[in-house]
Amino acid sequence: MEDLGETPVPFRLDVPQEELDDLAARLRRVRWPDELDGAGWDYGIPLGETRELVRYWREEYDWRAAEARLNAWPQFTTVIDGARVHFAHLRSPEPDATPLLMTHGWPGSFVEFQRVAGPLTDPRAHGGDPADAFHLVLPSIPGFTLSGPTTERGWEFKRVARAFAVLMERLGYGTYGVQGGDWGAAISRELGRVRPERVIGVHLNLLPGAGATAEPTEAELSGLSPAERERTRASWERYRVWAKERQGYADIQATRPQTLAYALNDSPTGLLAWIGEKFAEWSDPRCPVNRDQMLTNVMLYWLTGTAGSAARIYWERAHADYFGLPPEVSTTPTALADFPRDNFVPLRHVAARTDSVVRWTSYDRGGHFPAMEVPELLVGDVRGFFRELAGAVRPSGM
C-alpha cells in the first residue's frame, strides 16, 4: 500500500441545526421498554439509568460547546487504501517532541483523548518536563465516526495498522511511538510488529492475547510464583465471567452487524444504551467517565451514522484467516499500563511468549478507558516509558 500522494485536507465539524432538531425530536418520542422489578444490571443497562441519561442528553448536554472544543484541535481527512481517514494532528510547542500515534477502540473515538492531549503535547504548561513532549496524531479508525462508513470488506485491525503506517509517513514522521487500548491496542501492537524500523515503542493499556482463556491446570500453575499463580486464577475467573455474561455484544457484532445497525442507526436511545452500558460497566466506579464526554462520543456515532460500520470490524476479525490463532511475535519494545478494572487480567508469562515487554506497571485504580478515567496515570506512564526508551539509546556520558 503505497498511496502516499493524498494530501490531507483540513476538516471542521459543523453539524446542521436540522440534524440536532431531528435528534431532539427522536429523544422526546422514545418508546421505553418494560423492566423486571429489582433486575438491576442483570439484564443490561437499567431503565432508570437510561431514562436519566436521555433526559440529560435532551435537556442539559450542549453539543455546540462540545463541537467548539473539538474544533480547537487541528483536524484533517485523507484517503488511504480507498478509505477516508479522519485525524487530529496536535503538534507540540517543543520542537524536539516525540511523534506519538494514539488510537481509540470500540465504542470510543478520538474524543477519549481530550483529557490527556494537553499534558502530552505541552508538559511545560502542565507542570511537567518539556523533554517529555509529544506531537500527537489521533486518528479515527476507518469505519468509525468521522472515518466512516467504510465502503468495502476487509477493514480488520491489521489493515488499519497498515493504513496508519501510511498516515504517519504521509505526515513526514520517519520514526514514532504508538499507544492504544481495546482495538487501538491491537492496531498499535500490529504497527510495532510490521514496522519495527519506524515504531520506537508500543505503549498499551490492554495487551491482546495475554489473558487466560481456559482454566489453568496444576501443571501450568506449578512453574509459576505464588503471586503469578493467584493472578492466573484471577485472570481465568474474569474471563469466565466475561464469556458467560458480557461478550454478547461482540458475538452480535461479529456475526450480524448489519441487523444490529438498523436499530442503532434509527434510535438514539438505543445507540446510547448500547454504548453507554459499556462506558458504565467497563470503567472503575471510583473514577467514572465524564457524562458529557461520553455523550460527545455517542454523538459522533449518531451524527455520522456509523454504529453498524464500526461494528463490522468485529465481523472482519472473526472471518479473517488469523482468527483464533495466538498473536504473531513482536520484537518492538512494549509497555503495559495495567488497570485493575479493565475487562481482562493480563499475565506476564503469557505476554512473554509473543511480546518484548520492557515495562509493566500495575495501578490500583482505573478501567478500560484510562484516558477518560485516570488521565494523570496514563500520561505519567506514557511519559515514563518513552523517557526510558530515550535513555536506553542515549550514548554514555549524556
Rank of each mutant, 00 (worst) to 15 (best):
M1Q: 11
G5K: 11
V9D: 02
V9M: 09
V15L: 15
P16K: 06
E18P: 00
D21N: 11
A24E: 11
A25F: 01
P33A: 11
P33F: 10
D34E: 15
E35P: 05
G38I: 11
G40N: 08
D42E: 15
L53D: 08
D62Q: 14
A65T: 15
Q75R: 07
H89F: 09
L90P: 00
E94W: 01
P95I: 07
T98E: 10
W106A: 02
W106T: 03
E112G: 03
Q114S: 10
A117W: 01
G118L: 05
D122S: 13
D132S: 12
A133V: 05
H135G: 09
L136P: 03
F144W: 12
T150N: 13
F157A: 14
K158Y: 10
R159N: 13
F164R: 05
G172S: 13
G184A: 12
A186I: 08
V194H: 10
R195C: 15
G201S: 13
G211D: 06
A214N: 09
G223R: 08
S225L: 07
R229D: 00
E230L: 09
E237V: 03
R238D: 02
Y239C: 00
V241F: 08
E245F: 06
D251V: 13
D251G: 09
I252S: 01
I252V: 15
P257H: 01
A263R: 01
P268D: 03
T269M: 10
G270S: 08
L271H: 04
L272Q: 01
I275L: 11
F279M: 01
D284P: 04
N290M: 00
L295K: 02
M299W: 06
G308L: 07
E316F: 12
D321H: 14
D321T: 14
G324H: 12
A335S: 15
A337Y: 06
F344D: 06
R348C: 07
R348L: 09
S356A: 15
V358Y: 07
T361I: 10
F369Y: 13
P370N: 10
E373P: 06
L378M: 13
G384H: 04
R387L: 05
L389N: 05
G397D: 03
